[in-house]
Computed example of a mutant assay.
Amino acid sequence: MVFIIFVIFWACVLSLVLSKVKSGRMAKWAKLFRIVTVVFSVSIFTYWFIKKSAVGFIDNSVGLQVINKLPQTLDFYVINVNNPEKNGVLESKHIGKIRPEYYRVEYLKMDQSNEYWIVGYLGKKNLVYFSQHSVPNKNIDQIVEVQNYINQSLKLSEAAKKQVDAYNYENTKLGIWVALDLLLLFLNLVLIVRKNK
């Protein structure tokens, strides 16, 4: 998706430059390029927003239910450990903020993994919960009740903290590029509609 967002960004910038072409044979091609850019961008963002807002059910996945039994709202992340026997790759996912006595359900792709970690934050940087879980049977969904503030492994929780920081950094960077794309898309759309009137 990152590559497509860069393509949309540069296409929208080029479309704004081409909006200055108003006469000659190039004007028709410029207008056609601008219309195609706007339609393509709107289609991609519509698909992406619908996909992001839909329920994250994955085929052949393990359902994970995280229940917050603590008296405070915590922000939870789940980290899937792929190929743990070979110094595996860590994949982060933001479960979300869970209020006391509430739960969230997440679906984990466990094809190349039999272990996941749950990380809980109180605020943005204060890691107050870390637990490590194995999945011996991938046909049974997992239920984790967070009942106290624990850190099962200082070494692993440090790795988890770095992974969550990197995940949040990438999401922030992606959010900035998406905001720029949407702004340029809006400017292009306004220019096309205004010229048509």
Rank of each mutant, 00 (worst) to 15 (best):
Asn126Ala: 08
Asn126Thr: 09
Asn126Arg: 13
Leu127His: 09
Val128Glu: 03
Val128His: 01
Val128Tyr: 03
Tyr129Cys: 03
Tyr129Glu: 01
Phe130Tyr: 14
Phe130Val: 00
Phe130Met: 06
Phe130Pro: 01
His133Ile: 12
Val135Met: 05
Val135Glu: 13
Val135Leu: 05
Val135Ser: 09
Val135Lys: 11
Pro136Ala: 10
Pro136Met: 05
Pro136Ser: 12
Pro136Lys: 09
Asn137Tyr: 07
Asn137Met: 03
Asn137Cys: 01
Asn137Pro: 00
Lys138Pro: 02
Lys138Tyr: 05
Lys138Ala: 04
Lys138Val: 01
Asn139Asp: 13
Ile140Glu: 15
Ile140Trp: 04
Asp141Leu: 02
Asp141Arg: 03
Gln142Lys: 13
Gln142Ile: 12
Ile143Leu: 10
Ile143Met: 05
Ile143Tyr: 00
Ile143Trp: 00
Val144Lys: 08
Val144Phe: 06
Glu145Arg: 14
Glu145Met: 06
Val146His: 10
Val146Ala: 13
Val146Glu: 10
Val146Asp: 11
Asn148Phe: 07
Asn148Gly: 12
Asn148Glu: 15
Asn148Arg: 15
Asn148Thr: 15
Tyr149Pro: 00
Ile150Ser: 11
Ile150Glu: 14
Ile150Lys: 14
Asn151Lys: 09
Asn151Gly: 01
Asn151Pro: 00
Gln152Phe: 05
Gln152Val: 06
Gln152Thr: 12
Ser153Trp: 13
Leu154Arg: 13
Leu154Glu: 11
Leu154Phe: 07
Leu154Ile: 08
Leu154Asp: 15
Lys155Trp: 02
Leu156Thr: 02
Leu156Met: 12
Leu156Tyr: 10
Ser157Asp: 03
Ser157Met: 10
Ser157Lys: 08
Ser157Cys: 02
Ser157Thr: 03
Ser157Ala: 14
Glu158Val: 06
Glu158Cys: 00
Ala160Met: 09
Lys162Asn: 12
Lys162Met: 03
Gln163Leu: 03
Gln163His: 06
Gln163Ile: 01
Val164Phe: 06
Val164Pro: 07
Val164Lys: 07
Val164Glu: 04
Ala166Phe: 13
Ala166Gly: 05
Tyr167Val: 07
Tyr167Glu: 02
Tyr167Phe: 15
Asn168Met: 15
Tyr169Cys: 02
Tyr169Asp: 12
Tyr169His: 13
Glu170Ala: 14
Asn171His: 13
Thr172Met: 07
Lys173Leu: 07
Lys173His: 07
Lys173Gln: 09
Lys173Met: 09
Lys173Tyr: 08
Lys173Asn: 07
Leu174Asp: 05
Leu174Pro: 01
Leu174His: 09
Leu174Ala: 09
Gly175Pro: 02
Gly175Ala: 14
Ile176His: 13
Ile176Asp: 01
Ile176Cys: 02
Trp177Met: 11
Trp177Phe: 15
Trp177Ile: 09
Trp177Ser: 02
Val178His: 01
Ala179Ile: 08
Leu180Val: 04
Asp181Phe: 06
Asp181Ala: 04
Leu182Ser: 02
Leu182Ile: 05
Leu183Ala: 05
Leu183Asp: 01
Leu183Arg: 02
Leu183Gly: 05
Leu184Asn: 03
Leu184His: 04
Leu185Pro: 08
Phe186Ile: 14
Phe186Asn: 05
Phe186Tyr: 11
Leu187Cys: 09
Leu187Asn: 00
Leu187Gly: 03
Leu187Trp: 07
Asn188Val: 10
Asn188His: 03
Leu189Pro: 05
Leu189Gln: 07
Leu189Met: 14
